[in-house]
């Protein structure tokens, strides 16, 4: 029988961080956290899991993107008051904090408008730092397909981020 407590304790921080970077909202992150592990349970029922970290990172990304898309469907409204402290970058000054926070927030909103596969591949590569090969292993795509998908995702994101401020941004 799977030691779920051990798994949650060992990989909880990974899932928390993955979800938090995309959602930035404690309530949504908590939802995502539980849904990620419940999804992992579904996977574990079907097949033996050899790489829990990889599986959970991918599931957390997918569930977080689901929530981002849901936010967009609901009018892009963010449910909690953003905590600017939580957007603080380790090296930046106060002005850069605000800029980085705004840019990050716009990217979150833009990811919610991207097709699921593109958004997922983009996050695995650029937020989680996985190599093309690792993404290929995780998603079952070929390495070439990862590259093509990533290229398309970046192109679409660039368009969305270049839109006038507010168009791709989470509304408050």
């Amino acid at each position: 029988m799977t030691d779920w407590e051990g798994i949650v304790r060992q990989y909880g921080a990974l899932v928390w961080q993955t979800a938090y970077r995309l959602l930035g909202d404690r309530a949504d992150v908590a939802d995502c956290f539980q849904e990620t592990f419940v999804s992992a349970l579904d996977v574990a029922r079907r097949e033996a899991v050899l790489n829990w970290a990889g599986l959970l990172r991918r599931l957390a990304t997918a569930r977080a993107l689901d929530l981002l898309r849901k936010r967009m469907r609901e009018g892009g409204r963010r449910d909690s008051t953003p905590d600017w402290e939580e957007f603080r970058s380790a090296a930046a000054g106060p002005g850069e904090h605000a800029q980085a926070a705004e840019l990050g927030e716009r990217l979150q909103a833009a990811l919610g408008r991207l097709p699921q596969q593109q958004a997922e591949v983009f996050c695995l590569r650029h937020i989680n730092g996985l190599s093309y090969e690792e993404i290929s292993d995780q998603t079952g795509m070929t390495v070439d397909a990862v590259g093509v998908t990533l290229h398309r995702a970046r192109g679409r994101l660039r368009e969305l981020l270049d839109e006038p401020c507010g168009a791709a941004r989470v509304q408050r």
């Binding site: 380790a90 980085a100 833009a110 650029h126 937020i127």
Partner: peptide
């Protein structure tokens, strides 16, 4: 210098509160 990379860096470098 690419806006996509800067945005990704903003999320990647964001300070995440301790958790869960």
């Amino acid at each position: 210098d690419d806006v996509v990379d800067r945005a990704a860096a903003a999320l990647r470098d964001m300070a995440v509160p301790p958790g869960p």
